[in-house]
Design a protein around this nucleic acid. Structure first.
Lengths: 213, 213
DNA sequence: AACATCAAGACGACCGGTCAACTATTAGCT
DNA sequence: AGCTAATAGTTGACCGGTCGTCTTGATGTT
């Protein structure tokens, strides 16, 4: 019984520390996305989740390392959402991509066009000045692209996506151009740039000729 | 002769003030592009061009107003370069656009892929938090797009660009997606994203069917 | 008691903007 | 024309913060 009690306390401590760390990352993602890296101070992050300032460094080595991990943390829900769409057994890969982007468009509109995407924002702000974050951004984008690449490859096999352009290039176009459209959305306060992007690539350019209307 | 001398001094003073202001803007563009808005302090700007710090506020009302004007200042050479290409009497509008982007690609590669584009960077960093800069960004992008829209419209009339997609949407795609490609270029340290963008839109998607190989 | 972990506040640096003191220019007077 | 007072422009020190990181005393664990 002593052993069982010790084990429960140990698990509880670990979970509490993970929970605090997760809260910091959640809050970091939120603030970094809405304010940017340099305009977001550590005090604001820790105060928002009731973590003492001095404790920050027991979770993260530095602000830069924190941001790098916030980047990875930010991507998780997107990777999960896209994976779910792609694993939908009744939907072909191209339609799954379309559904995925359509769902994102609804979400950003609901969010009042604010923030856009953490990846694009930080690429612009600290892509040149933080090697660590640059690395995290690159990895995040690469993971995102790889999922879309696989989907396009499968769609090519199924005959719904053109084969005269490589799936690699098409996945790059999706990932890169989505970022540009999100930036424009932010200043125009409109999802029109996103819709134009989807129409152009997913409903037209990528579609195999035999599948076009 | 007294009148002539007074007139020369007056002109010289005006030119000196304009020259200092221009130097501040040039330096501001450079630093904002390489470091971002919040990581660039006013001291760094004024020190770089030997202007006393207190004088900064006789040129610009605030840091925010300065950045807004740096945005407009930054766009001038691009507008001029694009205009020159489009006014080239021996080149059709679509080829002029291609030549313009090809020239930019050479320039960013020569610059070591650094900075990217001030517009995209600041949209991501302060597009949500500075209304004044958001306005300047919007105007700058709109000006840039308008030039490209006119070129595409003319190209449609000449039969080199497809007509089943509006020139408006195509100009938007150019402007938005170029920003996304530049962000990716920054983290990948490669012009490949830019080249893929140009190949896709200018050499394929935009081209009238009868002009495709 | 000895050791490990936590965290409040100190550290040295930086921030944008203000303003008193100073300098330059203009207006008014003789 | 020359001088003085009034006005306009310039600017470096200052203001009241903020910043990320580190130190050291407090607290927790064994």
């Amino acid at each position: 019984m002593t052993k069982y009690t010790t084990s429960r306390i140990l698990v509880s401590t670990m979970n509490s520390k993970l929970s605090k760390r997760t809260k910091l990352l959640d809050q970091g993602v939120y603030l970094l996305m809405n304010q940017g890296y340099h305009a977001t101070g550590i005090n604001e992050i820790v105060n928002a989740v009731q973590v003492p300032k001095g404790s920050f460094y027991s979770y993260f080595d530095s602000k830069e390392e924190f941001a790098a991990q916030a980047i990875t943390h930010y991507m998780e829900p997107f990777i999960q959402l896209l994976t779910r769409h792609l694993q939908h057994s009744q939907v072909d890969p191209l339609s799954a991509l379309k559904n995925y982007y359509a769902e994102l468009i609804v979400a950003v509109e609901k969010n009042g066009y604010k923030g856009g995407c953490l990846l694009g924002n930080l690429m612009g702000e600290i892509g040149d000045t933080s090697e660590r974050c640059n690395q995290a951004l690159k990895s995040a984008i690469e993971r995102y692209k790889a999922l879309q690449y696989k989907a396009l490859l499968q769609a090519q096999k199924e005959g719904t996506v053109r084969t005269d352009r490589s799936a690699e290039i098409m996945a790059n176009l999706l990932v890169n151009n989505w970022q540009g459209a999100l930036l424009r959305m932010k200043i125009e306060q409109s999802v029109q740039p996103l819709q134009e992007f989807c129409d152009t690539l997913l409903n037209d350019y990528f579609v195999a000729k035999s599948n076009l209307d």
